[in-house]
Nucleic acid binder design. Structure first.
Lengths: 139, 139
DNA sequence: CAATCCACTTGTAAAATGCAAGTGGATTTG
DNA sequence: CAAATCCACTTGCATTTTACAAGTGGATTG
């Protein structure tokens, strides 16, 4: 018997508000960023991200992202003590939005050199870059 | 004498975290949405948006968005009692990211029919739609 | 088998949010 | 032209969320 899909209630039927209900806080999108751009996969990886998220908040956000279908919690192949977090297809599909956010932010703020180069690469070949990034997560 | 530009401090030099510092809460992006897609321009307009923001939070978010350079607070041509809020170029430049967020969300959630049509139009001609939307805000 | 690793959980203080009511100047109404 | 209403907020307070520090319990390492 397959799992039943529980309907999650959102504030409204607006796609933007629904998106915000899932990842619209100060931390969730940074977890996704760490998965996409830094290859992070475990609780410990995320804890030691650049911006120092509190451990209870991290646990809470991982649960919300999982419930929102963005990430998948799995057994880690290396150890029973570890948990492997990966992006679902729905999570991978956030990449185009992330790329636009990065490009926008880079245009108007002081960001690190790596982000500047990334934005430049987007200007050269946005579709190619997005395809390449998303391709890295296909099974 | 011109205004001095005060440097605002952000969590890190990551473009995503900086973006989140400006509009990464449950309400800010909905205000921007209301300006872009519903033509809202005044405090009263925003108060009566679909999702019922509290008045003190609205005041706070408008101030943050203004300080973040997304919106501009101006005199209203019709009345001294009114304030006109408009998008800055930096605000208008959020449109591509918004469009990606809408497309992503529409793909995975139940959204209202208008949003479904919008997503369909994006699939047909993304660049055209974005250009058209952004064009509506050029001076 | 003791120490360490790992993914959390718990307790509590601080901050943000939400709700209801109020303020004061500008505008409309009778 | 005074009273009522509009408009953009502000204030006070309850509730919720976030942050910080410490702890837990199973898995792994030395």
């Amino acid at each position: 018997m397959k799992k039943k899909k529980k309907k999650i209630e959102y504030r409204s039927e607006c796609p933007i508000s629904t998106a915000i209900d899932i990842w619209g806080d100060k931390w969730s999108l940074l977890i996704v960023r760490d998965m996409i751009f830094k290859g992070k996969k475990t609780y410990g990886d995320f804890l030691n991200g650049g911006e120092q998220i509190a451990t209870n908040i991290l646990a809470d956000r991982l649960a919300i992202l999982e419930r929102g279908g963005i990430i998948v919690r799995q057994k880690h192949p290396d150890s029973k003590a570890k948990i492997l977090y990966t992006l679902s297809p729905k999570g991978v599909d956030l990449i185009p939005a992330l790329v636009e956010i990065i490009s926008w932010s880079e245009k108007y703020h002081d960001v690190h050199p790596q982000a500047q180069e990334f934005a430049k690469a987007v200007r050269k070949d946005k579709k190619g870059l997005i395809g390449q990034l998303m391709g890295g997560f296909q099974k």
